[in-house]
Design a protein around this nucleic acid. Sequence first.
DNA 1: CCCTGATTCGC
DNA 2: GCGAATCAGG
Length: 255
Amino acid sequence: MGRDGKSTGYRAGSGTETGQGNEHMEWTDETIARLRDLWSQGLSTAEIGRQLSITKNAVVGKAHRLGLPPRPSPIRNRKVTDGETGTTEATPRRKSPSRAKVAEPAAVDLFVNKEAAPAKVPAAVAEKAPEKPAAPVRKAPSVAPEAATKPTSQPVDASHPLPVAAKEPFAARRELAAAPKPEPRVAPVPRPVTPPRFSTAGIDRPTRRGPSCCWPIGDPGTPGFHFCGATPLPGKPYCAEHAAIAYVKIRDRRD
DNA sequence: CCCTGATTCGC
DNA sequence: GCGAATCAGG
């Protein structure tokens, strides 16, 4: 139990800051709701982090605290059954946890009108970003997340639209919308695709319960801001139309 | 080398 | 409680 105290431990963010109030992520109900939603949809922690403008560490950390069900880890199960092989040290417990070194962001110009897409937008800039919600780009891994992690076994054959909303264990979402919470998690990334034009066609009632398309419409913070609300694709946070522009194959910006 | 998630542990 | 740092497997 006695954890050797490493006095060297300290992180960036506290101290040299010019006086920013929020040192930690503001986990509001809306944010947590989206976290759980994306988590249940099988998105990667890093992917969720990008959409929430946070690091994957924050995502996975919060996810565990929320009691979210752990998803198939790429690494070995640290705690399998009690039958643990004593010969091989399962977990050497961190070698040198000297987290004294911190990466210095060096305050890059994010909002300049350059073609370079910012890796991640700070919350301060993000909430003031006049840019329309760019598509949360994500790459397509070899294995689809929903296919890999879906105990419910999503029917690939979309022969008939099954009531996915009915079997969704997670009821009550962010269908409320119009929440004055700043969370435009994406930056103006120059994509060759057409700007998100929200055609009324195909959009169901935003008042429906269950999973709804979480594509942000309008500027967050404004009373007119709301989410699409249409029926999302199975295993995806967006509806068919928004998913088409959201899941664009481009080199995502990761730090 | 890239990705992934889990865990640890200072704050 | 939060999240960077770290570890670890594919």
